[in-house]
């Protein structure tokens, strides 16, 4: 089964992706006692120029998905087709070429920039590594250009990260991601560490850059409001699986999966009038361990709609409305 629209070939297509991390016991003779099933069978497609939001709570596997697509992890099983090429099987040399086209923006602008490197050298490094702009003067010009594209003073090239605020550092991280003119950027919680007013500035910048350079984003976040603001389509993950996938407004206005509903209901809206009218019962329990996920539907122990079948049969994604996919056998 593939979740792709009938139109042109998607830029990125993930099929049956699994990423299991072994759990071992014992100090010397390590015994394999199980696997953390961080990603456990995910199908996704991202069209060129699209921003796909990937949301879910801690431990749902969204970051591991991003790391597999960046090939920072080698998936246990499944295919990741980028422009039709399966990048899950590329060797080291082939990966270098891939990394010019796929870049990443990390969450924490404090730990993702080397404190002993000047900003100019941080942004220039990808160009050095990949042998573009070999001439130092032209590389410096390019760095200044990237800084100004990202809304920073070009003279910041001579600063160290500690001389900058969190928002400014995140702009440096974005400039670095843009240095090689990538097509596709994985934004892993790119605005989560920032205060709301700074967050809004960075979201606006990401939108501007997307339009300017025709970028495709995989936007990984736990903050649903940010995702609603920025994405065209959204995939909701729970315990290593995609449970719902739909156009952004459709998903937020008309969620179908019980987990998505619970997740949306849990987010308080910044408006006392709306909140006063909202009857709300938080979903019970906590996310189970990904080492021993529940059989059948992984959400069934917390689900208000669960029936006997949910305990046994793993639900596959079904297209309940055009473009709206749900992995639940109870809702219709």
């Amino acid at each position: 089964m593939t979740v792709a629209s009938a139109e042109a070939q998607p830029l990125l297509q993930v099929r049956g992706l699994r990423m299991h991390f072994p759990v071992t016991e014992g100090m010397i003779a390590r015994r394999h006692i199980g696997d953390v099933k961080a990603v456990d069978g995910v199908d996704l497609a991202i069209q060129r120029g699209e921003t796909l939001g990937l949301v879910g709570e801690s431990g749902c596997g969204k970051t591991t998905m991003g790391r597999c697509i960046l090939r920072l992890e080698k998936p246990t099983a499944g295919e990741i087709l980028y422009n039709g090429i399966d990048i899950a099987r590329l060797d080291r040399r082939e990966l270098v070429a891939l990394r010019r086209r796929i870049q990443v923006i990390f969450q924490d602008p404090y730990s993702s920039l080397n404190p002993r490197q000047k900003v100019g050298s941080i942004i220039g490094e990808p160009m050095m590594v990949h042998g573009v702009e070999k001439d130092p003067r032209r590389r410096a010009d390019r760095v200044r250009e990237l800084l100004s594209v990202c809304g920073l003073n070009p003279n910041f090239a001579d600063r160290y990260p500690h001389e900058m605020s969190g928002g400014q550092r995140q702009r440096v991280g974005i400039a670095r991601a843009l240095a090689l003119n990538p097509e596709f950027i994985v934004c892993d919680e790119a605005v989560s560490a920032l205060d709301v007013s700074i967050q809004a500035q960075i979201i606006n910048l990401l939108e501007d850059l997307r339009d300017k350079f025709n970028l495709t984003y995989l936007f990984i976040a736990h903050d649903l409001s940010v995702v609603r603001h920025l994405c065209q389509r959204v995939a909701v993950m729970y315990l290593g699986r995609v449970v719902e996938l739909a156009e952004c407004d459709e998903l937020f206005d008309n969620p179908l999966h019980p987990y998505t509903k619970a997740l949306l209901a849990a987010v308080p809206v910044p408006d006392p009038a709306v909140e006063a009218e909202r009857a709300f019962q938080p979903v019970r329990g906590e996310v189970p361990s990904p080492i021993n996920p529940p059989p059948g539907c992984v959400f069934h122990p917390r689900c208000p709609l669960a029936i006997e079948q949910c305990r046994r049969v793993r639900p596959e994604l079904r297209e309940l409305r055009p473009g709206h996919w749900v992995a639940c056998d109870v809702v219709s």
Binding site: V196, A200, I203, S225, V226, R228, H229, F252, P270, D271
Partner: peptide, 9 residues
């Protein structure tokens, strides 16, 4: 500056 969940962009 707060993005809203209950409203489109």
């Amino acid at each position: 500056s707060v993005p809203r969940l209950d409203r489109p962009r």
